[in-house]
């Protein structure tokens, strides 16, 4: 999907903070110089076109008192799809990737407490036949920034 500069400006705004107001698209439009209809239609087109995955709250495991961890598993490459299926069936697993390393299956686990994490990791070990799962909980967070600010091209036309 081709994004125009005005779309990029809208994305820069709504990634950082979607207005929590009665008429959010009016507010977005005011910031980029278009009316409510155009702001809404552009956001809807980017959602329908797949550029926007979702608009909502990015809830924080720690803010809610939950725990999250990054895990890795060594799996023979011809068994990785089966192992990935075992891992992905948990709602607690939000990200699950194959990566180019001896530890080749990487996934996150979010749970109310570490006992629940341990229980899930033991089950994955048992049901996949691989492991034990390498558990790498957070020690310190330096940065988390999930919005990507777009640079606008120099306006060719005014």
């Amino acid at each position: 999907m081709n994004l125009e500069d005005i779309d990029k400006r809208i994305l820069n705004i709504i990634q950082t903070g979607f207005p929590i107001t009665h008429a959010p698209y009016t507010e977005i439009g005011e910031k980029v110089g278009v009316d409510e209809d155009e702001a809404f239609n552009r956001v809807k087109a980017m959602f329908d076109g797949g550029v926007i995955r979702r608009i909502g709250g990015s809830f924080d495991s720690r803010g809610l008192g939950w725990t999250s961890t990054l895990c890795a598993l060594k799996v023979p490459s011809d068994k990785i799809e089966e192992a990935a299926k075992v891992v992905s069936r948990y709602a607690n697993v939000t990200h699950n990737y194959e990566r180019n390393h001896e530890y080749n299956l990487w996934f996150t686990v979010i749970a109310p407490d570490t006992d629940e994490v341990d229980r899930i990791l033991k089950e994955i070990h048992r049901d996949s036949g691989f492991g034990p799962v390498r558990n790498m909980p957070l020690i310190k967070k330096f940065k988390i920034k999930v919005d990507f600010q777009f640079k606008e091209k120099k306006e060719a036309t005014a």
């Binding site: 994305l11 926007i52 909502g56 990015s58 809830f59 803010g63």
Partner: peptide
């Protein structure tokens, strides 16, 4: 601080 951010998540 229940959520970190309220807004659009992109692909």
């Amino acid at each position: 601080k229940y959520y970190r951010r309220f807004g659009a998540t992109l692909r």
